[in-house]
Amino acid sequence: MITSDPPRPDRVTGRRHIAARVDDVVNALRNRLFRRRGWRPRIVPYTGYGSTHEVRLLARVLLAPPVTDRDPRMDAAADPDPDSTAARQRATRGWRRFLTTPIPAARVEVDVDGSTYHLVTDRRGYLDARIAVTLPAGWHDLPIRVDRGRPSRLRVRVVGDEPTLGIVSDIDDTVMITHLPRPLLAAWNTFVLRESARVAVRGMAELYRQILAAHPQAPVIYLSTGAWNVAPTLTRFLARHGFPEGPLLLTDWGPTNTGWVRSGRQHKHDTLRRLGRELPQVRWLLVGDDGQHDPQIYDDYAAEHPQQVLGIAIRRLTATQQALTTTATHRAPAPHVPTVRGKDGFALVAALRAAGLPPR
């Protein structure tokens, strides 16, 4: 059985916003032009998650130039070996990720435990589907195909039915520093060409690894307002700096049915609520920074669902980083859940232990 997603803000009835209509017209013209030039569908798989009875599959289908096995532009996601380091390094980086065109209503097939599911992408080429399954806890690689395109695999993290701890982590200024003002941060994260140009926050990878050492079944979710286009680059950055593997839940920067852009803040609010519905057995440690809206978003969710929040850990930005942050927030800790603060991962480890929270 295939289950529909909860309604998104851009899924509305009635007349669509001019932004969406213009975007659809331009995309249709690009599809016709590039197909005449021999461009083919390419699957960009994203890491999904779910329970033993239902999983969320995430991917995108794009038109891209035809490639060969020796072409350095070959998308790592299309490599038949998803664990191949060489394949990851071949993945297209930075601005090249935007030289593709989404394929709306693309029909894809996904194989799960002997059954084949027939799914369709949305107007921006995204596949975001929940399907009923019977899968054991752990990691699974699910074959996915599209007509005339290179097959790939969807990586899915299945969380067991027993109560467990989980981590929801922000990315920018929480695990990664770019030393740029917020107005430039999004553009930098989108168009930077090398992972080495980004700096990991001290001790954050060690914090997450320590928690997983004590709670090996804990899922790790990376929640960010960054664009889906840079998911492969962010995945390589996290792996390179020793962060645990986990789904990235990002957003689409394209026009919506209600406006030109989506609200990043609403994206985080909605995603936390969705995780609470889909994985009710998990109590989350919410990790973010005080440079923008994380404290308020986490406090609001903890107030709504205190039984699903184990604690809140906020990385305290330096004075320089605060000066570059245009929307810094200064809030008192939420009274309903333990909240700790620290300048980096090492300080947060000590603060969490002092509060009686993992790692311990």
Results as ranks from 00 to 15, higher is better:
1 M>F: 12
6 P>Q: 12
8 R>N: 10
11 R>A: 06
11 R>Y: 13
12 V>E: 05
18 I>E: 08
21 R>H: 10
24 D>A: 09
25 V>N: 09
25 V>R: 14
28 A>I: 11
35 R>C: 06
37 R>F: 14
39 W>L: 05
44 V>W: 03
44 V>G: 01
45 P>D: 01
48 G>A: 09
51 S>Q: 12
52 T>D: 05
53 H>R: 13
56 R>V: 04
57 L>N: 02
61 V>I: 14
61 V>Y: 00
62 L>M: 09
67 V>G: 00
69 D>A: 12
77 A>E: 10
78 A>D: 07
89 Q>N: 11
95 W>F: 15
96 R>V: 04
105 A>W: 14
106 A>T: 03
106 A>M: 05
119 L>I: 07
120 V>E: 11
120 V>L: 11
125 G>T: 03
132 A>H: 13
138 G>S: 11
139 W>Y: 12
143 P>W: 05
148 R>Y: 07
152 S>H: 05
156 V>W: 02
156 V>E: 00
158 V>A: 01
158 V>M: 09
159 V>D: 00
160 G>L: 05
160 G>D: 10
162 E>G: 11
163 P>V: 07
166 G>Q: 07
167 I>A: 00
169 S>P: 06
170 D>Y: 07
175 V>N: 03
177 I>F: 12
179 H>W: 15
179 H>A: 09
183 P>V: 03
184 L>C: 02
188 W>Y: 15
193 L>Y: 09
199 V>P: 09
203 G>K: 12
204 M>S: 03
208 Y>C: 00
208 Y>T: 02
217 Q>W: 11
218 A>K: 04
222 Y>I: 08
225 T>W: 07
225 T>P: 08
233 T>M: 15
240 R>G: 04
253 W>T: 02
254 G>H: 14
255 P>M: 01
256 T>S: 10
259 G>K: 07
264 G>T: 10
267 H>A: 05
277 R>W: 15
278 E>Q: 12
281 Q>N: 14
284 W>Q: 01
284 W>V: 03
284 W>H: 02
288 G>V: 08
294 D>K: 11
295 P>I: 12
295 P>L: 13
296 Q>W: 12
301 Y>K: 08
308 Q>L: 13
312 I>D: 00
314 I>H: 01
314 I>N: 00
316 R>F: 09
317 L>V: 07
318 T>H: 14
320 T>L: 15
327 T>Y: 13
329 T>N: 05
329 T>Q: 11
339 T>I: 07
342 G>K: 12
345 G>R: 01
352 L>N: 00
